[in-house]
Every structure is written in structure tokens, then in C-alpha cells.
């Protein structure tokens, strides 16, 4: 929408949305933010996606604040609605852990809760319209802003690698180094003779290593892939908006001249909010509200804009399912992997 006025191409628009705000060392030796994908690429490994880290920490902090507040006030009496809803999540995670993890650990359940809520929060950023926060960032002088940390493969793989380290840690702690090596080399081909063992050593190790490494990779990439695809579709839907407003902009230009005045957008937005507010106040029936909204959206953006609205709504509704499911899957797989690490074969 803002981009429509700047007259950039669809490719540039998508690239802009998929570029992280990268801080690192330029090839010439100076430190700073990368301007564009090539510069970010040139920075190599020792660079940071400032936006990913910022939002991840912010949302982790939100998790800590919300749940910490409940934890501080938690008492056995009649719970407030807020406390009850938080406890419902805790209960849900606790049940999941109890069902899948057959062992005793003070660590697994808090880990699962943190992962579930944190990943859900990070995924939830996907539902914020894709242009809002980057637009604010651009106005504030920040060139790139990718607000969904889980669409950054670094974030998801970072978490997956932590889980992998935990798998190794628990495997060795429970089974010992020898037991772990035994597990890696003693199956799937089994033999009782020494020659057989030596013969099967390499194939077994190869197969088991692939199985072991597949865990963190699939864990991280599954989350990343789902969210990245979702984000991309939101961006494409936003492009439909852009196309729609482009069409209308031509029509509006004949009224307003070259530049559509800002007050037009303000009035349009205000009228939509006013309609919704009147409906909430009960002064407008829902049927009339819907017709009015339809008319307002048509007036502001045309048919393509309206189509974009509907697509956005439907994809967001579907995506709400996806983000919850992905957070849940990440949590469940973590529990299952750690449970497997606790078990002797």
C-alpha cells in the first residue's frame, strides 16, 4: 500500500519483505547494517539478523511476563480468568509431556512449555499484516524488518540444534558413552560374533548417524518451511492488494491529480472503524454493517482490493491453525526425541 505509491515492482516488494535486517562486518572491514541481500551474503557467518533476535527476545519476554505474572500470583484459591487460561496451557503441556515422556525430569516439561508458547508467539507475528511493522520500521529509518522470527531459518535451526545438544546430553547421561556408541553401531544390523560386529560397524554407524542428524534438521526445517511458506503467501496476498490499489489509484488520480492526499486514506480507514464501532454499539444491524463495509472497501480499493481482503481473511484463519499446529509439533517432537534419548534399546 505504501509500496504502491513508491512504484516498486512486485519482485522488489517480495525481496524487501524477505530480507532480514543484518548487522555484520562488511568485506571492507567496517561493521554496519547490510543494504541488500548481496551485502548480507558477503558478511558470511559472523553476522546477526537483528530483527530476528529482537523479535524473538521480545516475544520470549512477553512469554516470561505473562506466565511470570500468573506464577507470582498463583494460589490454590479460585483462579482469575487470566490465571485459568494460562493454567489451561500449562495443563495441556503437562499432559502432553506425561503421555509421551516416560521418565522423570524436572526439565522436560518447562522446556516443552517454553518452546510451545514461545514458538506460538513467534508464529503469531505472521498474522500481523505484512506491511505494518516494516512500514513503521522504514518510517523510523530502519531499512529492513522481518518480524516473524520463525521464518528465519537461523532461529528455527538454532532451537533445533539446542534440542539436538540436549538429545546428545541425555543419551550420554542415561546410557553412558559406551551405551550411546553401542546404540549407534549395534543396530539395525545385529550380530553376536565379533566378526559380524566389526563388519556391521560402519553401515550401522552410517544409518544411525543419518537418523540422529535427521532429527534436528527435520525439526528446524519443518517449522521454518511452514512459516516461510505462510509468510510468502501473505506477501503475495498483499501484492494483490497492491495491484488493486494500483488500479484504483489510476481512478483516484483523475480526481485528486498525481498524488492521492493522505487524508483520503485516513478518512477511508476512519469510516471502516466507525462502521464497526457503530455495529458494536448496536446502532447498526450486522447485515447493514456488512453491506457498508463492502461498499467502503470497494470505494477505497476496488474489486482486487476486496478480493485481497477476503483472501487475507481466509488464509489468516487457516494459518491460525498452522501456527498452533507447528508450535505443537515442535514441542511434541522435542519431547519424543528426548524421551527416546532416555530409553535403552
Amino acid at each position: 500500500m505504501a509500496s504502491a505509491n513508491e512504484k516498486i515492482t512486485a519482485g522488489e516488494y517480495i525481496r524487501h519483505h524477505l530480507q532480514n535486517l543484518t548487522y555484520g562486518r562488511h568485506p571492507d572491514g567496517s561493521w554496519g547494517f547490510a543494504h541488500g541481500a548481496e551485502e548480507a551474503q558477503a558478511m558470511g557467518f559472523w553476522a546477526f539478523h537483528v530483527d530476528t533476535i529482537f523479535w524473538a527476545l521480545l516475544l520470549g519476554g512477553a512469554f516470561f511476563l505473562i506466565f511470570g505474572r500468573v506464577a507470582r500470583q498463583a494460589e490454590a484459591g479460585v483462579p482469575t480468568r487470566f490465571q485459568a487460561s494460562v493454567e489451561a496451557i500449562v495443563e495441556f503441556v503437562d499432559t502432553s509431556v506425561r503421555e509421551s515422556f516416560h521418565g522423570t525430569s524436572r526439565f522436560i516439561a518447562p522446556l516443552a512449555l517454553t518452546l510451545f508458547v514461545w514458538i506460538f508467539f513467534m508464529n503469531f507475528m505472521d498474522l500481523i499484516p505484512v506491511d505494518w511493522l516494516p512500514w513503521v520500521a522504514v518510517k523510523a529509518g530502519v531499512e529492513y524488518q522481518k518480524v516473524v522470527p520463525t521464518t528465519d531459518v537461523n532461529a528455527t535451526m538454532g532451537m533445533a540444534i539446542t534440542v539436538f545438544v540436549l538429545i546428545l546430553f541425555y543419551s550420554i547421561r542415561i546410557k553412558g558413552v559406551g551405551g550411546f556408541i553401542q546404540e549407534l553401531t549395534g543396530q539395525p544390523f545385529q550380530s553376536n560374533s565379533l566378526i559380524g560386529k566389526i563388519l556391521f560397524f560402519l553401515p550401522n554407524l552410517l544409518l544411525e548417524l543419518v537418523a540422529l542428524l535427521a532429527k534436528p534438521i527435520s525439526l528446524g526445517l519443518r517449522l521454518f518451511g511452514n512459516l516461510y511458506a505462510g509468510e510468502l503467501i501473505f506477501i503475495l496476498i498483499a501484492l494483490v492488494f497492491t495491484a488493486g490499489s494500483g488500479l484504483v489509484a489510476t481512478g483516484l488520480s483523475s480526481v485528486f491529480g498525481e498524488h492521492i492526499p493522505a487524508w483520503f486514506w485516513v478518512v477511508a480507514t476512519a469510516s471502516v472503524f466507525l462502521t464497526l464501532w457503530l455495529n458494536m454499539q448496536g446502532r447498526l444491524t450486522t447485515r447493514r454493517t456488512l453491506w457498508l463495509l463492502l461498499a467502503e472497501m470497494l470505494l477505497v480499493g476496488g474489486l482486487a482490493f476486496l478480493g485481497g481482503q477476503l483472501m487475507h481473511f481466509m488464509w489468516a484463519a487457516f494459518h491460525l491453525l498452522v501456527i498452533t499446529l507447528q508450535a505443537f509439533i515442535f514441542m511434541m517432537l522435542t519431547i519424543v526425541y528426548l524421551s527416546m534419548a532416555h530409553e535403552h534399546h
Binding site: 557467518f45 533476535i53 524473538a56 520470549g60 537461523n154 532461529a155 538454532g158 532451537m159 540444534i161 539446542t162
Partner: peptide, 19 residues
């Protein structure tokens, strides 16, 4: 892939520890 990976890892451990 860059060092964000490491920071995210550390952040995760800290949050888990908090929790």
C-alpha cells in the same frame, strides 16, 4: 545461515531456564 543461530540457541536456553 549466520551467527543468529547461536544467539537464538542461547536465548532459548535462557528462556527455558527462566521457565
Amino acid at each position: 545461515i549466520n551467527a543468529t543461530l547461536i544467539l537464538q540457541s542461547i536465548a532459548m536456553m535462557i528462556f527455558v531456564w527462566f521457565c
